[in-house]
């Protein structure tokens, strides 16, 4: 992979992991988790698995939406 893209993806992964662990509000944790997920996709594309990347990008938000069902109940 191109070095700059690889370093940027690893930086996004580490930033997302640390922010997801440190934040305490569930919405802040979900936003930071989205940053973590953004760092995963260049690795999948670089291996050439375009079908896997397409399927994962379409079904990954469902997990967040299911988690939001609990968050709304928690805050209300």
């Amino acid at each position: 992979m191109i070095d700059v893209v690889m370093i940027a993806s690893v930086a996004l992964l580490i930033i997302g992991m640390v922010a997801t662990i440190v934040n305490r509000d569930p919405f802040d944790k979900l936003i930071s988790l989205s940053v973590l997920i953004a760092g995963v996709f260049p690795f999948i594309i670089d291996r050439g698995y375009l079908d896997v990347a397409t399927a994962t990008a379409l079904i990954a938000p469902l997990s967040t939406i299911f988690t939001l069902m609990v968050c709304r109940r928690e805050r209300a």
Binding site: T20, P26, I37, S63, T67, E74
Partner: peptide, 12 residues
């Protein structure tokens, strides 16, 4: 909720 969100990290 915290445990469920943290469970996503080792999944990825």
């Amino acid at each position: 909720v915290t445990q469920l969100i943290n469970l996503e990290i080792p999944g990825w």
